[in-house]
Design a protein around this nucleic acid. Structure first.
Lengths: 342, 342
DNA sequence: CGCATTTACGAAACCGGTTTCCATGAAGTT
DNA sequence: AACTTCATGGAAACCGGTTTCGTAAATGCG
């Protein structure tokens, strides 16, 4: 049904090998035959079949996409889907298509990402980190397959990662609150064992120390980045006075959960308690009051991940991880003291 | 590096053809050799290389994923990403992986989805409809490649689609408002030429007629489903009194835009104007007041799309399009009159 | 003009599977 | 015992490309 390279060769009066060389810019082909063949290709709209080419070259121009967490990270994730959109755009420009591995138990080889990468001969992988990284991810990262992770600070022979400078996230928040004359700061962090939570905690503790603010352990809890956990953490914080004057939640979703708890408790944001989230997802703008948050530059993260992966694929080893600066986005949930004075 | 079928054959002391027959359950192989070979496969973890198999069989077990709109529909879309998550789960269970076509100009063959489907030999395609469907999509739908669309009511030899019963969306809204004793109803619809907008308009007009409610054309506008357009439409509606008592926006995002305009105008929701959105995206719960909306059953849409596509691939022709019932989700932006009376 | 070198292209092996067709031998039949 | 039938498994062509290698023609040079 479809045209093969032999058809093209016959039409142009040359051998298949010659056609192949022309398509792949090998050189060693005369200008006139080149033109002749290219004309035929043009007219017929011929394009080499993927599987044949892939079989012969052992390359695929495919990037494997892996949602590595056992739970809850998928298309709907408001942070990662932004990163992905940006990544997809750039990686497409670089000439790759994206293969999404299914995660289902029913799939053969479900466990081993490495086996599936080899099976499809993907040129590289993007690994999106959820919580509770599966064993199979470590196996892949240790392999010779080029991989880039998002928010996943591991090491491997051809592995690197991008993430927001998480320590800076916390320090920006603390600095801002300090300048607003707020000292009583609570912190609802993400999953204890996740890379980003650990880094944010370090940043928090470090900058609290730096500004000479004492840390109240009763105001520090861990959630799982999702709304419900923010709600529960805030409930606990509000169980015993005194209350903090500000809460920093390590995700906007948890901030929304905290907001609910605060309002149920009859307190007002930001008059009684200031609230700062993290990520800057869409909903921040639609909530009332609009949520002040630390924006992660998701476009940049996706873009850097794409270029990093491309470099890794093209043989550049030992690419350093890339950290992206966060940005504080001031909205209504954390009114500056100055404004209140006016 | 990797094992081939020849290696397995050698190890088991049989021919490659025999191994292939065993893997693919051809029969005609004795029980003892079958066991012997399977043991070797088991031990080595051998798996046939994708491209070789695909080349030989002209199948790929791959589903092409196409975001068909020229603009603005991608991972971050709060409606489609839910559908996709559900679709991916089911289609994975059915044994497929998903190939995402890049949309970039830099990509060869960027225009023709059909060419790219043939190139990768995908077994079928899922087409997510944005606005302004590209020509290339029609070409694909007309082809022999099995395709399923979401919110894209076209016809083709092996094409079918899923969508919410859009007429019912409007009629449910009108009915609800009617029962709340509201007669002055405004309607901010989506893009004029999109399938869903046309159907929702039909449903709106039809049920307004049915309930004997007059339609005020000054209260009807078209947006593009995104927030800004809802804002602008509402501005126009509020430019000249009298104002409607309720607004139905054909997407939650436009409802949020309208909300902003209403509040800027000094009016209160729902006391002055009731507001009903459509889709039931996450932000509905986080907005204040929480947004009443018509929920589309995104999980079901994705699930049905997956099964529909699988049927089409397996040779079942002429699958009828599937319509999914919408559901009215009552929240605060549209307080029932009864409550107010109490 | 004759020889060495380079250029241009084709022949054929190869990538790793699938599938058709045929050979072999065991079992069944008369 | 001879012949047919059937179950089994191997040989080889094939899918559609790439790439090595060899050779004929074109070119350079003395």
């Amino acid at each position: 049904m479809n045209l093969t390279i032999k058809d093209i060769a016959k039409m142009a009066g040359v051998s298949p090998g010659t056609v192949s060389k022309i398509i792949n810019n090998y050189g060693g082909i005369g200008e006139s035959t080149k033109q002749k063949v290219q004309k035929v290709i043009e007219e017929t709209g011929y394009r080499p079949t993927f599987s044949a080419k892939s079989l012969a070259t052992k390359k695929s121009n495919l990037i494997g996409l892996i949602y590595a967490g056992k739970i809850n990270v998928d298309f709907t994730h408001p942070f990662f889907n932004k990163v992905m959109t940006s990544f997809k755009k750039i990686i497409g420009e670089l000439g790759y298509d994206i293969l999404m591995f299914s995660n289902e138990q029913f799939h053969q080889d479900q466990g081993s990402y490495l086996a599936r990468c080899r099976h499809f001969q993907v040129d590289g992988c993007l690994i999106i980190a959820g919580e509770e990284i599966e064993e199979a991810v470590y196996e892949l990262v240790q392999s010779e397959i080029p991989c880039v992770g998002v928010d996943l600070n591991l090491t491997g022979p051809r592995y690197s990662y991008v993430m927001t400078d998480n320590e800076k996230i916390s320090s920006k928040v603390v600095e801002h609150l300090y300048l607003q004359n707020i000292r009583d700061i609570g912190f609802i962090n993400g999953k204890k064992d996740s890379s980003v939570a650990i880094l944010r905690e370090q940043g928090f503790i470090e900058s609290m120390k730096q500004f000479g603010i004492p840390i109240n352990k009763d105001w520090i809890y861990h959630g799982d980045f999702f709304e419900q956990s923010g709600y529960q953490a805030m409930k606990k914080i509000l169980a015993n006075p005194p209350y903090p004057k500000a809460i920093f939640a390590a995700s906007d979703l948890m901030a929304f959960g905290a907001k609910k708890a605060i309002e149920e408790h009859g307190l007002t944001i930001p008059t009684d308690i200031s609230l700062i989230g993290c990520d800057d997802i869409e909903s921040c703008q639609y909530s009332t009051p609009q949520l002040t948050t630390v924006k992660q530059d998701k476009e940049k993260l996706g873009k850097l991940a794409a270029h990093l992966l491309n470099d890794l694929i093209n043989g550049e080893m030992e690419k350093k991880p890339l950290l992206v600066d966060p940005e504080l986005v001031l909205r209504e949930s954390c009114t500056p003291v100055r404004k209140q004075i006016l």
